[in-house]
Design a protein around this nucleic acid. Structure first.
Length: 653
RNA sequence: GCUGGAAUGGCGCAGUCGGUAGCGCAACUGAUUCGUAAUCAGUAGGUCGUCGGUUCAAGUCCGAUUUCCAGCUCCA
């Protein structure tokens, strides 16, 4: 047979050969790094015997697929280590995942100490260098095999396999696991690995089924790649908004106030107000919005009309529920119907549409207690909400404008590179969770899809992520650990107008049903602040900093001049403080740097005499002595244009 | 909500076998008046998240509770 290799060369053999033998035949070095084969585009095990002409590529440890094989093999080594140290533990499944692997065990919870011991045991297994072999068994024998070994979860897995599937096992020197592979040829191939954490997981992800203990780990082909990965995780921890935001004194939480209810300090509030003033002015003055101010609660009746009472009751805080003498009310989980009634307060002509109502809107959602996290998942939050009432023929242009506004906002914040677009669709297997029929969903989803396609926006599609009243264009951002959250949402709703009796007068003088776009521009302030903290690791662009300039007098003698400098800056709206403590200048600079100040102005005898300031910035270090007026001009321009100055790399101490 | 872990001065941590809580930084006071990443000395600050129990005695053991963290999506 003829084997065509990736580089175009051809190998000919007159007998059956395994992928590994062919790799070995090509070169010993290649065999050492081989992890799997790719036969006619399909990933196969190294032990796969080849008997026919085909195209073959040897997948090595430097390929992503090869890394998955290493990780999967590492998970089996972990399973063996667990069986050795905890013989009563039952094995379940252990796949490779995006940045590592996990294995679920039916066992007592593992402590960090257990993980360290398991790591040491894995080292032994690897050192012992067991050859990993593969064999298959007929179904009944496979079940018996795992029954004999008292592995009930494996038995269940085999029973659930399709009748005609091949049931394969991998044996690494006595430890045998049911597995489709592929795997390395020896445990020795796993050279760099680390157990990261352990946690609970349910058998088959079903909370009604057995509770298992999951161990997360990661593995790389080289030690330095592992180190780089672990460093990155450590670096992520330093950026984590939930830690850094508290450390920097931007927000806090208080036990007695409750979960998911962060308190913003003067510093954190300052940042949010800068964002809020900017976005409100932008929407009102440049993007044609009118601003509303509507109640934070309403009678239950409102939510019955909107559908929230039926579809969203668990997510709402309901007041006076058990008191028959009082009206049942609910804190609002969204702004939609409130703004609808603002719209309906007067009659609208087709000529007046689109009618864009914006509100800085505080919402309340009764999230489950385990779902809250830092500033990204809270029970009370404030969003840059808007509802746009429009004619169907205006929807395409208006949706495009919405994406443009969001893009502009993301770009200004400097996080446009961090986001991806997603078309969030309904779940057609769960129709009762949504309003409207199949046709409604297909048509509105197609509408959003075509708008994005026309605007050359790349996007993914996700089932079951829609709002109950319509599909969404979601702008997703990943946090510092790679976890994704929705930052901005643009929703098309062709159903609510009818429910609420909203209409406009068309060119013939008849009543017509408008469409509604629900959208945010910057999303929720809490979440946006969290992303900014993580994206900039707390080193925000100057315009966003709660403290933009700190004046540092060399000694007490120059405090008066420092105060004058500060007063001049304050007049221009710059957030400035004076460090008037009797400390040495080096100490003050150190503190200001650790506070991530963008600008420090050192003033002493020379500066006072010449009406100058000695500028030191986070971006460029010592920027030299400048006339005060020149510095004021410079920083005001930087703030006005929302410039994102690049950091120069400086030795951190 | 479920599972596991955690909670000790403002922050980071120590606290052994149950025996009346320590350290570093920060803060405060005094001295120093200083030119670009830590001046010196001193002082004060905690009923150990909360409630209850066991005990002669609880930060430590037991129970409850609150909050925080991780996971609960990846299907041999």
């Amino acid at each position: 047979m003829k084997i065509t290799l990736k580089d175009g060369s051809v190998k000919e053999y007159d007998q059956v050969k395994s992928v590994f033998d062919i790799a070995k035949d090509i070169s010993e070095g290649l065999a050492r790094v081989a992890c799997a084969g790719e036969v006619n585009g399909e990933i196969v095990d190294l032990r796969t015997e080849i008997s026919e002409d085909c195209e073959l590529n040897i997948v090595t440890q430097s390929d992503p697929e090869g890394l998955r094989v290493i990780r999967h093999t590492a998970s089996h080594i972990l399973a063996e280590a667990v069986k050795r140290l905890f013989p009563e533990a039952k094995v379940t499944i252990g796949p490779a995942i995006d940045d590592g692997f996990y294995y679920d065990f039916d066992a007592e919870p593992f402590s960090r100490e257990d993980l360290d011991n398991l790591e040491a045991e894995m080292k032994k297994i690897i050192k012992e260098g067991h050859e990993i072999t593969r064999f298959t068994l007929p179904r009944a024998e496979a079940i018996k095999f795992m029954q004999d070994r008292n592995e009930p979860f494996k038995v269940e897995l085999i029973e659930d396999l399709p009748e005609d599937s091949e049931i394969s096992f991998y044996d690494q020197g006595g430890f045998v696991d049911l597995c489709a592979g592929p795997h390395l040829m020896s445990t020795k191939g796993v050279k760099a690995y680390k157990l990261i954490s352990s946690s609970m997981a349910y058998w088959r992800g079903d909370s009604g089924k057995a509770r298992l203990q999951r161990i997360y780990g990661t593995a790389f082909s080289k030690k330095d790649e592992l180190k780089e990965h672990l460093d990155k995780l450590a670096e992520a921890k330093l950026r984590d908004h939930n830690k850094l935001g508290r450390e920097m004194g931007l927000f806090t939480t208080v036990d007695v106030i409750g979960q998911g209810l962060p308190l913003f300090t003067p510093k954190g509030t300052k940042m949010i107000m800068k964002l809020q003033r900017w976005i409100e002015d932008l929407e009102d003055n440049e993007w044609g919005y009118v601003r509303t101010r509507t109640p934070l609660m309403a009678k239950a009746d409102l939510y019955k009309i909107s559908g929230h009472w039926d579809h969203y009751m668990d997510g709402m805080f309901i007041l006076n529920k058990d008191d028959e003498d009082k009206e049942t009310m609910a804190l609002r989980p969204m702004t939609c119907p409130f703004q609808y009634y603002v719209y309906m307060n007067e009659q609208h002509s087709y000529r007046d549409l689109p009618y864009r109502m914006a509100e800085t809107s505080t919402l309340f959602r009764n999230e489950d207690s385990g779902e809250m996290h830092g500033l990204t998942r809270v029970r009370q939050f404030t969003i840059t909400e808007a509802h746009i009432v429009l004619r169907p023929d205006q929807a395409e242009e208006e949706l495009t404008r919405c994406t443009e506004l969001c893009n502009y906002v993301m770009k200004t914040l400097g996080i446009d590179g961090d986001v991806t677009y997603r078309l969030s669709k309904w779940d057609s297997n769960n129709k009762e969770k949504y309003l409207g029929d199949e046709e409604y969903w297909n048509s509105t989803q197609q509408y959003l899809r075509s708008v994005m396609e026309k605007n050359n926006i790349t996007f993914t599609e996700a089932d079951g992520e829609a709002a109950f009243y319509g599909p969404k264009i979601d702008i997703q951002a990943k946090n510092v650990y790679g976890k994704e959250d929705t930052m901005v949402t643009i929703q098309l709703d062709c159903a609510s107008a009818e429910k609420f009796g909203m209409y406009y007068i068309d060119a013939n003088g008849d009543k017509a049903l408008p469409w509604i776009i629900h959208r945010t521009s910057m999303g929720c302030y809490e979440r946006t602040l969290a992303w900014l903290i993580e994206h900039y690791a707390g080193k925000f662009p100057t315009w966003l900093c709660p403290e933009q300039v700190r004046v540092l007098p060399i000694s007490d003698k120059y405090i008066a001049y420092a105060d004058q400098v500060a007063a001049e800056l304050k007049k221009k709206g710059v957030d400035v403080t004076v460090d008037s403590r009797s400390e040495k200048i080096g100490y003050k600079i150190r503190e200001a740097r650790m506070d991530r100040l963008p600008y420090m102005l050192v003033v002493g005898q020379q500066e006072e005499a010449e009406r100058t300031v000695s500028v030191r910035s986070r971006f460029a270090g010592d920027e030299g002595v400048k006339p005060l007026a020149e510095f004021i001009d410079q920083i005001c321009t930087e703030i006005r244009t929302k410039e994102i100055r690049q950091e120069v790399v400086q030795e951190e101490k």
